[in-house]
């Protein structure tokens, strides 16, 4: 039985097996290559997406549970936003492979805390590994996007 969901606001139907990983459906069926595979075991967060507004690792989600779900990938985020500009300006992206997941983690964080403290930012990103930045520039970008000082 096909699974029907909404991906980045558009209806999508997948006929992959219900135990297929959402990650593979997004990348291979929807050609949404912004969702990356870094480890395949839910450790790195490179495959993070929002499901019904919640940050999740798409490598750990069986397609069968996505019936009627609202899924947001990096491609579904606004092209120009305070967050996007801050990420570029503050140097929050280096190699960029963790960046889509980080953008989604930051989006989820800001939805919950409009003005997050440094501790909240740290906690909100703790499921997304970055090997390039040491996270400092990412904190700065999120703080700036929230309207605060980038000098966190």
């Amino acid at each position: 039985m096909p699974t029907t969901m909404r991906i980045n606001g558009k209806a999508f139907q997948s006929s992959s097996a219900p135990n297929a990983r959402l990650l593979d459906v997004l990348r291979n069926e929807c050609d949404l290559k912004g969702t990356k595979e870094g480890c395949g075991e839910g450790e790195c967060g490179a495959c993070a997406v929002l499901v019904n507004g919640k940050l999740v690792n798409s490598c750990l989600i069986p397609l069968g549970q996505m019936e009627q779900a609202e899924i947001t990938t990096v491609e579904g985020l606004p092209e120009d936003s305070a967050l996007a500009r801050a990420f570029v300006q503050c140097g929050a992206t280096q190699c960029g492979i963790c960046t889509p997941g980080m953008m989604l983690a930051a989006t989820a964080l800001l939805a919950e805390h409009a003005n997050p403290t440094l501790e909240e930012i740290r906690w909100g990103l703790s499921g997304n590994l970055c090997r390039c930045t040491g996270y400092g520039r990412i904190y700065a970008a999120i703080a700036q996007a929230a309207g605060g000082s980038a000098d966190v």
Binding site: L32, K33, K36, E75, A84, V88, T93, G96
Partner: peptide, 22 residues
């Protein structure tokens, strides 16, 4: 003290940058 925006910045934050598996 800041420096210009990274030339690869927007491609990376939008998910448009293509890595080998992409």
């Amino acid at each position: 003290v800041v420096g210009p925006a990274r030339v690869d910045g927007f491609a990376k934050i939008s998910g448009a940058a293509l890595y080998v598996d992409d």
